[in-house]
Design a protein around this nucleic acid. Structure first.
Lengths: 260, 260
DNA sequence: CCGAGGTGTTCCACTTTATGGAACTTGAAT
DNA sequence: ATTCAAGTTCCATAAAGTGGAACACCTCGG
């Protein structure tokens, strides 16, 4: 285990449910001796990757890492524009929205806008979600070829719920539908009780792809409201696509325009 | 230079104006041989810290880091972050510091750090001051539009001192200067005999705005010391802004130094 | 007041990894 | 085809990281 691999492993320990970590916790999670873990965490803190909370005992991600996401956001016009659109949609709709990116077969959020409704999806995708079982993931997978998706999910997976894709065949089938309608939808899958609509947009110049997503509590959203979310999200995604020059949306612009 | 230090140094290369990096750029910025830099970036990519853009040439931060930044930005509040910075400044400078919030046309302190100098400002926390006649107030007012400020101060006020703004026109004029230099300053206004420097930072996601302030006895502070306070306060405000994603400060380069 | 059980740190011989100069490959422009 | 810069690989040397065990430091409860 190189220092770099251990460092990344430590960072992967953090999640929405674990915002700080101790030497013993990390040693247990990484299956490393306490001595190494102690030195590793201290070295990471000295390097600015982590910071200690009180005097010294618990570690959490440091300013360097927290600032990185922010500076990337303002440097990437795609994320920036997508975020602006999501912010506008959230203000209009009241449900939670976020912008996500894919890393291998997982997706994680990069910006987040809590909804204004009393009941809204609170915890964003702080922890990476499996790309096959969330709307954001499938919206981005739909931009790849079937062969690429097969390569990404060579191993079978345990279904996360009854409504989630059970195997690669069902996933590919659902991706075909995503390509046809322009958006991906999840219903009570990786996030239980949560429904989500997502559209993916790519910037040809930088090779980035992001997903714009609106997530809502299934119980409170009517069919009409769902249609409205889809309409607004498609329009927003088209706006972003036009700004960054995403050919996929330009060619489908008219076909995707819903009648109502 | 340990691997960890090099890793952190690479991450520090990324900023609002540099969202991706090449081997040669990194080698030049870090003053490392190309051979090491080549291996380092590749190792960081293999660990998931970076990702390559096309086939292989430019590197950018990976989803692991961007996701971490996002899910922890809101984990610690704006006030806590600002308070930590003020505490650090107070320890370094010796003068009193506090974090304030605005409520309508008044501001009040929410945290307070007494200076270590024998003669220091001891303003009670919680006592509201008129926003037009203190540095904290004007630093936050400067983030609003002139129309919003006019609406807030529709009624004329009795000047609190000869150096304080006498009317709305003078206030707006001084707010313009605050916007230009990035900090607000008061001199013998609502608090007699006291000078203060303040910077305001806002969290876009929650809409909060706070002001970081250093207050000192006018009689004991030299011009050089005042300049030093301004320099440190601006740097501290920039750090907080980078953490919470305040776009107003993003245009200026951020020095996220490791814990020294 | 003392000891048990937990966490975290330090020590040290040993092993793996990183280092950097030079040679080599690649790619694109001329 | 030639050139130049970017990027990678090679290899002996130097510098890290490694892990077991001993040690330090807590907090409880007897």
């Amino acid at each position: 285990m190189t220092t770099l691999a251990s460092t990344a492993a430590v960072l992967r320990c953090f999640s929405a449910t674990r915002s700080s970590i101790t030497v013993t916790e990390a040693a247990s999670l990484l299956a490393l001796p306490k001595s190494n873990t102690s030195r590793l965490l201290r070295a990471m803190r000295d390097a600015g990757l982590l910071e200690t909370i009180g005097e010294s005992k618990r570690y959490r991600p440091g300013a360097l890492l927290l600032g990185l996401g922010q500076s990337f956001r303002s440097a990437s016009s795609l994320v920036n524009r997508a975020d602006a659109v999501v912010a506008r949609l959230v203000a209009a709709i009241g449900h939670t929205g976020y912008v996500s990116i894919r890393d291998g077969n997982a997706v994680s959020g990069v910006t987040y806008h809590p909804g204004s409704n009393a009941l809204h999806v609170a915890t964003p995708v702080g922890r990476p979600l499996p790309a096959h079982s969330c709307a954001t993931g499938r919206s981005m997978l739909a931009r790849m070829t079937d062969d690429q998706v097969r390569a990404l999910f060579a191993e079978p997976w345990a279904p996360v719920s009854r409504t989630a894709p059970q195997d690669i065949a069902e996933l590919l089938d659902r991706l075909r539908k995503v390509r046809a309608v322009g958006y991906a939808e999840s219903h009570d899958e990786a996030n239980r009780g949560v429904g989500a609509i997502a559209c993916a947009v790519g910037a040809p110049e930088t090779g980035e792809t992001v997903s714009l997503c609106i997530a809502y509590p299934i119980a409170t959203v009517t069919a009409a409201e769902r249609k409205d979310i889809i309409r607004r999200l498609l329009a927003g995604a088209r706006d972003v696509a036009a700004l960054v020059g995403d050919a996929a949306w330009a060619s489908q612009a008219t076909a995707l325009a819903p009648a109502a």
